[in-house]
Write a protein that binds this DNA or RNA. Structure first.
Lengths: 263, 263
DNA sequence: CGCTTAATTGAGGAGTATCAAGGCCAGTGG
DNA sequence: CCACTGGCCTTGATACTCCTCAATTAAGCG
C-alpha cells in the first residue's frame, strides 16, 4: 500500500496552478529554480548550518525539528508540496533547526539573495514573500494555542483534519492517506508521548471515527472529528499562495494592476 | 548598546531611496512616527480588525492574545518597549488576535504602506523588516517547544528569566521587577492554570530561589533558575535590532554582522 | 528470514487540573 | 478616613489526564 501511494506522489498536483499563461509568468533571472533530491532519512539541512537558500517542497514530506539543550528532538512541522522550508534561518543567518525527509523528496532551491532581489524590485514579489513569513507567524500562534490549551484528543483530531485538508488541497483523498511520520514524530509535534498518540488513535478506531492500521489512516466520521477538535468548521486556515509554480518558476503577479516584476 | 551601534536616519527612507549609502541622510518628510496612547485595560486593536499599521511599543506593557472558538482567551505574548506588535495581521489583512495594554502605554504607529515602501526601496529597510518577521517565527518555535515539551516549573523559570533579560535590556533591574500581568495571564501564556502558576511561584519562594509578594518579584538565585529552566546559559535568545529608536524614528543603519549578538 | 525499529497495550504513578474556601489588596464611595 | 467591594492571589483536597515503565506484537529492511 505504501508502494501504491508512492506512485501517486509521482506527480504532485499543485493547488491553484494555472496553465502558465505568458501573461502571468515573466521568466525570472534563471528560468527555473534548481532542484535538490533528498532521500528518505537524509537531512535537507542541519542545525547551525548557514542560511543561504529557501526551499519549496515539490515532492515528498519532510519534518522540521529543533533539538533542545537537553538533546531532545522537537518536531515543529511537517512540510508537503508547496510548503516553504528554511524560514527559520532568516533571522540570524543560521538555521536553528533541522529538516529531514520522511520520504524520498525533491525540493526547489531558492537562493535567498534572489528572493531578496525579487522582493526588493517587484511589488508582487515583496508582498508574496511577506505573506509567506506572515503566514508562518499566524500558523505558529495557532499551534501555540493547540499546545498550550488543548487536550490530547483535540490535538489528534486537529492534526488529522489538518493533514486531511492539506492532502485534499494537493488533490489526494481527504479521507484516506498514509502517515509518513512515526507516532513519536506526531507526539513530538503535538506535545504528547508516542504511547498517547497510539492509544488515542486506537480509541478513535474503536469508536468508528477513523480507521487505523499502522500508518494507513482513513477518516470515517468527519463531524465527530470536528466536534472533537473543538474548532468551528469555518476556522479553516487560509491558504497561502504558492511561491513557485509546478516548474519551479517564481510566481509572478497574477493580479491585474501593476504587480509586474522587473528584474 | 544596540541603539548606539546603529546610525539612524530621520524618517522614512523614501521611494526612490537607493540602497542607502548609510551615511547620506535625507530627512524627507515629517521627522517622527505618530504615536498613540492606550490606557490600561484598553485595546490597541481587537480581533477581526482590519490590518493597516504596525506598532512599536514605546512605553508600557501589552498582552497579545487570541480568542479560540470556544471563547477562551489564550495569551500569545507580552510586549515591552521596542517590541513590534501587529504582525499577525499581515498574512490576511485582518488581525486574528487582540492586544490590550496591561499598563498605561504608548506606541509608535507605523503605517504598513510606509513599511512596505521602505522595504521595497531600501535594502536595509527590507532586511530589517524581514528580520523582524523572521525573528517572530523563531520566537514562536521556541515557544512551541516550551509549551509542548516542558514541565510547569521549567516554563515558569524560563518565563522569569526571559522577563529578567528583557527588563535588563531596557535598563531596568534584571533581578527585581513587578509583574504587570495577572497569574491567569501568565498561566494562559505558559499553558498552565493560574493556580499552578501561583503554587509554583510559592514553591520557588519557599526554596529561596525567588521572592514573591503579589506582583513584586525578586530573582535571588539565577543559577537555580537556569538549572530549572533546563536551558544552557548560552541559549539566550538573540536580540532583535529595534525597528525604531527611542524617538520613533525608523532605524536606518548598517549592521555589523547579524542581529543576534549572543553572549 | 532473522534483525531492528515501530506500534500496541497494560498497570501504576507523577504532574496538573479542578473545585472550593479564605485572604490580600486596590479602588470606591460613604 | 474607613468600611466596602470585587478582583486577584494563595492554599488545600481531590480527580483525572497523560506520562513512565514494561512486555508483547507487528512491521520494515538487509
Amino acid at each position: 500500500m505504501i508502494a501504491s501511494s508512492s506512485l501517486r506522489l509521482a506527480y504532485p498536483p499543485i493547488p491553484g496552478d494555472q496553465p502558465a499563461s505568458p501573461l502571468n509568468v515573466v521568466p525570472p533571472v534563471p528560468p527555473k529554480c534548481s532542484r535538490r533530491c533528498i532521500r528518505r532519512g537524509e537531512a535537507l539541512y542541519g542545525a547551525g548550518e548557514a542560511f543561504g537558500v529557501l526551499y519549496v517542497v515539490r515532492i515528498g514530506i519532510l519534518k522540521s525539528f529543533m533539538v533542545s539543550d537537553d538533546g531532545l528532538m522537537h518536531v515543529t512541522g511537517f512540510s508537503m508540496a508547496g510548503d516553504v522550508i528554511g524560514l527559520d534561518g532568516i533571522a540570524t543567518g543560521q538555521h536553528p533547526g533541522e529538516v529531514v525527509a520522511l520520504d524520498d523528496a525533491e525540493v526547489f532551491v531558492l537562493p535567498w539573495a534572489r528572493c531578496e532581489q525579487w522582493s526588493l524590485h517587484s511589488e508582487h514579489g515583496h508582498r508574496l514573500m511577506m505573506r509567506v513569513l506572515a503566514h508562518e507567524i499566524v500558523r505558529s500562534k495557532e499551534l501555540m494555542i493547540m499546545l498550550g490549551a488543548m487536550h490530547a484528543d483535540q490535538r489528534i483530531a486537529i492534526f488529522l483534519l489538518d493533514l486531511s485538508r492539506r492532502y485534499s488541497h494537493l488533490g489526494y483523498s481527504p479521507s484516506q492517506f498514509v502517515l509518513r511520520m512515526t507516532r513519536q514524530d506526531i507526539g513530538s509535534y503535538l506535545g504528547l508521548k508516542l504511547e498517547t498518540v497510539s492509544r488515542l488513535l486506537s480509541r478513535l478506531h474503536r469508536d468508528g471515527t477513523i480507521q487505523v492500521r499502522g500508518k494507513s489512516i482513513a477518516l470515517l466520521d468527519f463531524p465527530a472529528l470536528w466536534r472533537l477538535s473543538g474548532l468551528s468548521s469555518d476556522s479553516r486556515r487560509p491558504t497561502v499562495t504558492p511561491i513557485v509554480d509546478r516548474d519551479g518558476e517564481l510566481v509572478v503577479a497574477p493580479e491585474a494592476g501593476n504587480g509586474g516584476a522587473r528584474r
